[in-house]
Write a protein that binds this DNA or RNA. Structure first.
Length: 245
DNA sequence: GCGACAG
DNA sequence: ATCTTGTCGC
């Protein structure tokens, strides 16, 4: 499995190769989770961005995908799939990749970018879940993780203001030249005082550079810690789970 | 053997 | 990820 990941990392592109201008991406505010937004289908040229997340029940995964365009939800799909292997750090894609692809098969719109819950290039072999699925679908993808799998932040990450970011550099645990920027710690939100919020760890999945990944996540956040696509997929996965138990 | 480790 | 009450603050 590790050799396969090296091949996937090799096939991945960590430079910008997007079908849209990242500078035009953004959400005005929180996206309505129950919006149908179908009236705009086929009318806009704006990029279709999908958020992917999962919820679990026993040995099954609920993979949810929520597609947004122009700051509105245009489609939601999901798949409930049996799980085969347990969670092993570094091998997450082998547990969740298949179930996620099953959900993508239910999607009717053509996404321009996928935002994953987990790492992309911030991975021992530079092949996190965002890279696996991005390469499999040859779709631009980024990984947004809530904790750091590997690599070293260029600066301390504690108590940073919203908008701050610092590179995550390859260290001995990463199969890349030492010092290579494999992603960034990005503070999407912060409290005004007292308690502090941990930063997000964002990294390229496929066909996106590390710096553009930060710009995209920044543009997709709307006042919450997680970018809108991820937030919506997270909630949708929970809804589907609740409805099926 | 010890430590470290996305979801 | 999941199991869960209370609690602080806009």
């Amino acid at each position: 499995m590790e050799d396969l990941q090296r091949e996937i990392a090799d096939a991945a592109t960590f430079t910008d190769d997007l079908p849209f201008d990242p500078a035009t991406v953004g959400v005005d505010g929180p996206v309505e989770a129950d919006s149908t937004g179908n009236e705009r289908l086929g009318t806009s040229d704006a990029p279709v961005i999908v958020g992917v997340d999962q919820a679990f029940l026993d040995e099954r995964a609920v993979s949810a995908i929520v597609a947004i365009q122009d700051g509105a939800v245009i489609e939601r799909t999901h798949a409930v799939t049996p799980l085969s292997i347990p969670y092993i750090p570094g091998l997450l894609a082998f547990r969740e990749g298949g179930p996620i692809l099953a959900a993508f098969e239910e999607l009717s719109v053509d996404p321009d970018l996928a935002v994953f819950d987990g790492s992309g290039r911030i991975h021992f072999r530079q092949a996190g879940i965002a890279t696996h699925v991005g390469v499999a679908l040859d779709l631009p993808s980024i990984g947004v993780a809530k904790s750091l799998l590997c690599g070293t932040p260029a600066e301390p990450v504690d108590d940073r203001p919203a908008g701050w970011s610092t590179p995550i550099e390859a260290d001995d645990s990463v199969e890349a030249p030492a010092g290579t920027t494999i992603g960034h710690a990005y503070q999407s939100r912060q409290w005004d005082r007292a308690q502090s919020i941990n930063p997000l760890y964002v990294s390229p999945g496929h066909r996106v550079s590390a710096s553009t990944t930060v710009d995209l996540v920044d543009a997709l956040c709307a006042g919450y810690k997680l970018p809108e696509p991820t937030r919506l997929a997270d909630r949708y996965a929970d809804d589907v789970k609740a409805a099926s138990e």
